[in-house]
Amino acid sequence: MKIAVLGTGGGARCHIAKLLELGHEVVVGTRDPRATLSRTEPDMMGTPPFGRFLAEHPAADLRTFGDAAAASDGLVISGIDGHSAVNALSAIADRLAGKTLIDYAVPFIYQHEPEHPWPTPWGIMPKLEPVDTDSLGEQIQRALPRTKVVKSFVTQEQSTVVNPASVGDGEHTMFVAGDHMDAKQQAIDLLKSYGWTDILDLGQLVCARGMEMYAHMHSAIGFGLGQQFGGHFGIKVVR
């Protein structure tokens, strides 16, 4: 299957590498391929330049966001950062029409000055926007009414999403939410191919609010485990 991955950051690279390992064709989307390949310095998260990753994964095909989405067989994974996702995806709405879009972004705002800051080992904890009464997943669905949006992957580091067995032999829970059952099934099938055995369908896309707001708890658990950035652990829903 030809699958599009939009984004070139660390999380997107996890999916690109895993999908290639599973035998899929992968088309990678970025805003400006030339600019992406010209970078020689790590990004703000310390991730090495994408050109180095691409040299190690030459089967991946780097294109613009729109061209990558159009080339997919119907499944698109969005690793575009939460602050930019709605605008970037709206600009290629026609290319995403009729396709399933799995969004895993957290709608973080990094540059803010809270009245009561939460200091972390890497700076002030970003704030969520939207929160409570809306979600990034819902915003994307409203902006792309002809696309079937699924929220998933967002409660784990992407390195764990593509390799659940790396934590507790895979005995933890992954979540999906969306308004289209066929699209959710595509996400579930992909998760199963990654190795997930415990996948909980939370229901409609409105449940993306809960998944996105969990991001702060994910960070807190990581800090409690002594993990300064990210979190190599899983959560299990015990029925």
Rank of each mutant, 00 (worst) to 15 (best):
P42N: 01
H15Y: 15
F229T: 15
A220K: 06
G66K: 04
L190P: 05
R34F: 11
H172F: 14
S78F: 04
Y194R: 02
T173N: 05
S78C: 01
S38H: 09
A85E: 09
A208L: 11
M174P: 00
V176W: 03
L190S: 10
S193M: 13
R52G: 15
P145M: 11
E212W: 02
K127C: 12
G210N: 08
L202N: 06
M1W: 10
L225A: 14
G98R: 01
E25S: 13
A60R: 10
M45L: 15
H218K: 07
A220I: 10
L200N: 04
F233G: 00
Y214C: 04
Q158Y: 12
S159G: 14
I3Y: 05
K151A: 00
I199G: 08
W122D: 15
D103K: 03
M213F: 04
A208I: 09
A177W: 04
L205I: 10
A208S: 15
V106H: 12
T100D: 08
G10L: 09
L202R: 01
C14V: 02
T30A: 09
M213I: 06
I3E: 03
D198P: 01
H216I: 15
L128Q: 04
V5K: 06
V28S: 01
D73A: 11
V161F: 01
G230S: 07
Q111G: 15
G23R: 02
A4N: 06
L190G: 08
H172W: 13
A4C: 09
H24W: 03
Y110I: 05
Q185Y: 00
A60F: 08
R13G: 03
E56G: 09
F233M: 03
Q186I: 01
G224N: 11
Q185A: 09
F223Q: 14
F65H: 11
S152I: 05
A165C: 06
K99W: 08
H180N: 15
V237N: 07
T160N: 12
S166E: 12
G168P: 01
